[in-house]
Computed example of a mutant assay.
Amino acid sequence: MSDPTGRGVFLSFEGIDGSGKSTQARLLAEALRATGREVVLTREPGGSPGAEEIRALVLQGDPDRWSAETEILLFTAARRDHLERTIRPALARGAVVICDRFADSTRMYQGLSRGNLRGVVDQLHALMIGVEPDLTVLIDMDPEVGLARAKGRQGVEERFEDFGADLQRRMRAGFLSLAGEFPERFRVIDGARSPEAVAGDVLAVVGGALASV
Rank of each mutant, 00 (worst) to 15 (best):
P89R: 07
Y109W: 11
L127S: 06
L138M: 03
R93A: 11
D142A: 14
I129H: 14
M128I: 14
D104C: 10
E144D: 15
L138H: 06
T106Y: 06
M108K: 02
L117E: 10
N116T: 02
R118T: 10
G130S: 06
L117V: 10
I129Y: 08
L147N: 06
L138P: 02
A92Y: 00
Q110Y: 09
N116Y: 03
E158W: 04
V120C: 03
H125Y: 03
G94C: 11
G119N: 03
T106M: 06
Q154D: 10
A92C: 09
A150E: 02
R93K: 10
L117H: 09
L112W: 06
L147D: 07
V96M: 11
L135N: 04
I129S: 06
A103H: 11
R153I: 05
L127M: 14
V97A: 11
Q110D: 13
V137G: 11
S105G: 14
I139N: 07
V97C: 05
G94H: 09
R149K: 14
Q154R: 11
A126D: 02
L135A: 10
R118Q: 01
A103G: 08
M128Y: 14
R153G: 03
G155E: 14
P143Q: 08
K151D: 12
D122L: 07
I87E: 01
L135P: 03
R88E: 11
G152R: 08
E157Q: 12
R153W: 08
C99W: 01
C99V: 10
G119F: 01
R88P: 04
A150L: 06
G146K: 08
I139D: 00
D104F: 10
A126K: 12
P143M: 09
G94D: 10
L135Q: 13
V156L: 14
E157C: 11
I139E: 01
A126C: 03
I87K: 05
V97N: 09
Q110I: 05
M108I: 15
M128V: 15
D134C: 02
D140N: 12
T136A: 03
V120W: 00
I129K: 10
L117K: 02
G155F: 00
V156D: 09
V131Q: 06
A150P: 04
M128N: 06
I129G: 06
V145H: 11
G146D: 13
D122C: 00
G130R: 15
V96K: 01
D140P: 15
